[in-house]
Design a protein around this nucleic acid. Structure first.
Lengths: 142, 142
DNA sequence: CTCTTTAGTTATCATTTGATAACTAAAGGG
DNA sequence: CCCTTTAGTTATCAAATGATAACTAAAGAG
């Protein structure tokens, strides 16, 4: 296997992924939520409960900045701190009901776009795609 | 096929892709180049020659802001305008030699990280990955 | 030849984001 | 018990990004 060529394919592929997901999420604009705040919400959604340090590390934000943005999300009642018993320095972050409802709506919009995109694919093609995602997920992006 | 479940997998997958590529590009900090400017450079690199409108559209930047950032890149001698004969309103954008050298270096660093990541994979696994990328690229992210 | 559209520029302002210093308070090690 | 580390907060400042208005100049349509 020519690993250099594989890298080229990888670059083209990840570029495509970014472009497509950018286009899919592009129009999703939530009131009073900035891009960074949305990313935090998204991260909480798929990983909750999370700590602030995890937000900070995974999203490459400094702890002070993470703290600031979280504060705004909490003010908007989209997420909340939950005290964790064994370590009183930390806390878990979770979506509130309002936050959950919001993210559900967002993901529904996304799913619609996704369904449009796969609408013209056949059943075997869908199976192929599912298999391909599984392979990349477990072998490379784990 | 449960298309709802496929969507869930898709979301998890794209999240992983973003996370991994973010981690890979995280440390790449070029002097006097901001994040947006880097994205423009990246876009030019894989798509050149491009027009300013293409940059604007693909990167979801307004034309004025694209113009401003391109100006800085040109001032840094990383890319250049090339007059296109049949329409004097437009111009093509290309990397200069300096820009090409820079992006080559960047991509070399990226490739290193990529090679580290696939180091422990077997030949058949690599083939699987290549095949999976090809499928997703052609059937979904085209 | 005029009018409209396209492609891009320049200037300006508001908002978002990034970076840093100085801080509190709890946990953990010895 | 003291010292260090971890987790997070608050405040502040600079820089990057986003949005908009007003503009030039070429292309294209009728």
């Amino acid at each position: 296997m020519d690993k250099g060529e594989l890298f080229q394919q990888f670059v083209r592929f990840t570029t495509s992924v970014h472009q497509v997901t950018n286009d899919m999420t592009k129009e999703i604009r939530i009131e009073n939520i900035t891009t960074v705040q949305y990313k935090i919400l998204e991260f909480i959604t798929v990983s909750q409960p999370v700590t602030l340090s995890e937000v900070s590390e995974c999203l490459h934000l400094s702890l002070p900045n993470s703290s600031r943005e979280l504060k705004k999300l909490i003010q908007n009642q989209l997420c909340e701190k939950i005290i964790v018993p064994n370590d009183r320095r930390k806390f878990d972050i979770r979506l509130t009901e309002k936050g959950t409802a919001l993210m559900n709506k967002v993901f529904q919009q996304l799913e619609l776009k996704f369904q449009e995109r796969i609408y013209n694919l056949t059943e075997p093609e869908l199976k192929e795609i599912q298999e391909a995602i599984k392979i990349l997920q477990t072998k490379f992006f784990a």
